[in-house]
Design a protein around this nucleic acid. Sequence first.
DNA 1: ATTGCGGATGCAATTTTGTTGCATTAGTGC
DNA 2: GCACTAATGCAACAAAATTGCATCCGCAAT
Lengths: 150, 150
Amino acid sequence: MAPMKNASPVGDIQSAIRAAGARVTPARVRALAALRAASSPQTHAEIEETLAQEAHPAIDRVTLYRVLDWLCSAGLAHKAADARGVFRFSAAQPNVEHAGHVHFRCTGCGGVFCLKSPPPPAPALPRGFRLGGMALDIRGECPRCVRAHS
Amino acid sequence: MAPMKNASPVGDIQSAIRAAGARVTPARVRALAALRAASSPQTHAEIEETLAQEAHPAIDRVTLYRVLDWLCSAGLAHKAADARGVFRFSAAQPNVEHAGHVHFRCTGCGGVFCLKSPPPPAPALPRGFRLGGMALDIRGECPRCVRAHS
DNA sequence: ATTGCGGATGCAATTTTGTTGCATTAGTGC
DNA sequence: GCACTAATGCAACAAAATTGCATCCGCAAT
Ligand SMILES: [Mn+2]
Ligand SMILES: [Mn+2]
Ligand SMILES: [Zn+2]
Ligand SMILES: [Zn+2]
C-alpha cells in the first residue's frame, strides 16, 4: 500500500477546469480530484473503482474515458501506457507549460516525468514528402520502479 | 526512396531456435526473420501483414501471438508497450543497419522510408532514472501518396 | 522409412481495453 | 427562468490480447 497524497482543494480544481475554458461538471471535478489524491498513476479501471466508493452517483464508463482524455488535452493530466499496455493517468503539475519540453514515460508504473530537454527539431525530408506529425517516445524506469525491480 | 529490406541468414535463425531447445517451425522462423529484417520494433498486426505478403501459407493470428511471446521467453526478442499501449516486438540481435538514422512512416500506404537525419541525442535524465529506449515517430505522406491525394 | 510422443498449431470463443454514434441532460451566460 | 450547446449516458462497435481444446507435425527413437 502506497502513501496517500494530500487532497487538492475543490476550489482549485474548479478554477483549473474553468481556466481551461470548459464547464465545471461533477465528472471532471471528481476525476481530477482522484488523480491529484493518488500517489501513483491510475488506470481507468482504478479511477472508476475509486469514484464508485464515493457515495456520489456513479460516473459512466465512457464519460470517464472522455473526461480523462479531456483533462490530458487541457494539460491538467498526463496519459501513458504502462508495462501491460494499459493507459495510466496522472495529475500534471499545475501552472506548467508542457509543450516546451519532452517527457519521460516509466514503463513500469506509467508515470510521466517532465525533462528539461526541448523537443527535437523536425528532420529534413526528401523532396515530395509531406510531414504529418512527430512524436518522441522516451521510455525507461523511474527511480521508484528501478528500486522495486532490484 | 523505397521501403528497405535486409535479411538474416535462415541457418542462423534455425540454429538460434534449436539452441533455445525448441522445434524449428515455419511460424518461428518467419516471425524471427521478420523481426530481424525490420527497421524498428513491430506490432503484432504489422508482423502479420508482413508475413501475409510472403506467398507462404498464412500464419494464424493466435499462433503469431504465441510465437512472439515464445521468442521473448527464449531471449530471442524483446516486447514492450509503445506510447499507444500496443505491444511492439524487436529482435534481440538488433539490425544495426537502421540504427544510424531515423525513419518516416507514410500514413497513406504504410511504407517506411529511411531518412538521412541521425536519431536525436538521448536527453539528460535526472538522477535515479534508467533510460530504456527512445523512438522518434515521424509520420506523413510519401510523394506518391501526396500526389494521389491531390 | 516408419512410428509415436508431445510440443506447436489452428480455430472458435472470450476477455480486456478503448472508441463511436446519437438522443438526452444539464452547466453557463443572459 | 430561458436558450444554447457542451457534456453525459447508453448501446453498439472495434482493437488488442488471451484461453480452451482438438488436431497436426517436428523430430528423435526405432
Ligand atoms: Mn511536462
Ligand atoms: Mn490494449
Ligand atoms: Zn515508475
Ligand atoms: Zn505512401
